[in-house]
Each structure stands twice: as structure tokens, then as C-alpha cells.
């Protein structure tokens, strides 16, 4: 069953045509990687799924984006509700200026959860899910800024998971991390597949190959190729894809 469907998506920043006629289906509980050179539109496309681009003035979208067969750009869609079911992890770790505990609890609190014992339980679960619990269980009250970059990023993943979204969007989640932290985050992404539909934007092709089931290659606002990761990396149909993944891109 398709979790996400993009139909004839065109996106504009002012007059700039950033995404051109993109059609894509993403199945439930898979990891999809978006790859492509900088400025190709992959992050822009990712940010359409939780309507993050709404925050940028003077942008507009033609076409449809369906999540669970609902057009999320239809009039009357509550954006905050949508964002509860579509979590997002950003390129740089961006914890709030709060304690570790409150960072994870934030999503629950803003959504009106008052039951403290439930919040405590959920924080523990998600921190365990993000493989961070053992490292922080004794310092939940400390500021999140005291954590290392890799820990902060896993905290941000835990934060996104705490409100139980069904989709997780990850915008280059490991680009600011060292190799060990990256390995931990990648391992986590493979785990997440069991419960979530994960879309990950990455510059690192090995990473895409390691974690994803399907890969989409973007170039200059167009989706050049989309298919099984193994096939994209071993036997791409398009020459442009071939050149990019072998690093002969120029």
C-alpha cells in the first residue's frame, strides 16, 4: 500500500521552477533515500511532505501530495495535525534550550498531553528507541546542549518519534556527525523501518546504499530515476545517474 504519493508536483520559489513534474509512490515501512547534487531540489521535495515550505514566503505548489490517500495541500487541512503524523529530523542537531527530558517531551506537551506518567514512559521508550537511553538516563534534567553532536542528533530523532508519527523525514541527518555517530544513526534508521516510513535526504551515496530500500536520484529539479536501491547502484538506467553514483559527475 502506498503511504505517500506525489502526483505531477511542480514547485516554485517565486519564479524559480524548483521541482518539475515529479511523480512518486512510497510504500509503507520502507526507507527511501533521495540523492543528487546540491540544489537539485531533493530537500525541497522532502519538505513538501510536512508542509515545511509553507514557512518560506512567495512559494507555490502545483500538483498533489497524498498521504494515506489524503491530499495534504487541500483547503482545511490542519497543518499542525499533519505535522504530528509526519516527523522531521534536520541536517544539524537542533535541540531546544531545555533539558534532555523536556526536549523529548516537547511534542507531547504542545499536543496537549498532560499525563506526566505517560510522558515519562514515552520519553524513556523513545530514548531507548533512539539508542540514547543508556547514555543519558542519569542526566535527563541537564541541558540538551551538554550532549555531543551525535547524541544531540539522536535526541532530535527521539524527539520526532515521541509523538508517534507514521512518517519520518530526515534531511541529511548525519552530515554534521563524525563516523561513529553516523554509524549509530544509520543503525537506528534501519531499526526505524519496522514502524515508520522513512525518507532520508543524503549526500553520502554509501549511506543511501547502506540504509535505504529505494533510492530516487534528483537533478536540476527533476527526478531522473527512482527504484530499488540495489538496482540504482548496480545497474542504473539513466546515464546521468550512472555518472553521479560513480562520482564522475561534473
Amino acid at each position: 500500500m502506498n503511504k505517500i504519493e506525489a502526483i505531477d508536483v511542480n514547485f516554485f520559489y517565486g519564479k524559480f521552477h524548483a521541482l518539475k513534474d515529479i511523480n512518486m509512490q512510497i510504500e509503507e515501512r520502507t526507507v527511501v533515500a533521495f540523492i543528487g547534487p546540491s540544489g537539485c531540489g531533493k530537500s525541497t521535495f522532502l519538505r513538501l511532505f510536512n508542509r515545511m515550505n509553507d514557512l518560506i514566503p512567495d512559494t507555490h505548489l502545483h500538483g498533489q501530495i497524498l498521504i494515506d490517500n489524503q491530499d495534504i495541500y487541500q483547503k482545511g487541512v490542519a497543518v499542525d495535525e499533519l505535522r504530528k503524523s509526519v516527523g522531521m529530523v534536520f541536517q544539524r542537531p537542533n535541540p531546544f534550550p531545555k533539558s534532555i527530558f523536556e526536549n523529548v517531551a516537547y511534542g507531547l506537551r504542545v499536543n496537549g498531553v498532560k499525563d506526566e506518567s505517560f510522558i515519562r514512559q514515552r520519553v524513556e521508550e523513545t530514548l531507548k528507541g533512539a539508542a540514547l537511553w543508556d547514555e543519558v538516563k542519569d542526566k535527563l534534567k541537564q541541558s540538551a546542549f551538554a550532549l555531543s553532536g551525535g547524541q544531540q542528533q539522536r535526541l532530535c530523532i527521539a524527539r520526532a518519534m515521541a509523538i508517534s508519527p507514521s512518517i519520518l523525514l530526515m534531511d541529511e541527518p548525519a552530515s554534521a556527525l563524525d563516523p561513529i555517530s553516523t554509524a549509530k544513526v544509520e543503525e537506528l534508521i534501519r531499526q526505524l523501518k519496522k514502524d515508520y516510513t522513512v525518507i532520508i535526504v543524503t549526500h553520502n551515496m554509501q549511506q543511501a546504499a547502506r540504509v535505504s530500500d529505494k533510492t530516487a536520484y534528483f537533478y536540476l529539479g527533476e527526478m531522473i530515476e527512482y527504484g530499488e536501491t540495489k538496482r540504482i547502484f548496480t545497474n542504473p538506467e539513466k546515464e546521468s545517474t550512472q555518472r553521479y553514483i560513480t562520482g564522475r559527475f561534473g
Binding site: N50, M52, L55, D80, E81, R83, K84, G87, M88, F90, R92, N94, F96, P97, Y106, G107, R109, V110, N111, C156, R159, A160, I163
Partner: peptide
Amino acid sequence: SMREASLALGASHWQTINRV
């Protein structure tokens, strides 16, 4: 990035201002 993180968690504009 901090505002976006808050909004991405389903917080309203006012919640984001107030809490983050």
C-alpha cells in the same frame, strides 16, 4: 532551525514563540 523543529512537532506558531 529551532523554530522549524518546533513547528515540525506539530506546535502552533504561538506555542513555538512561547516555548522555544
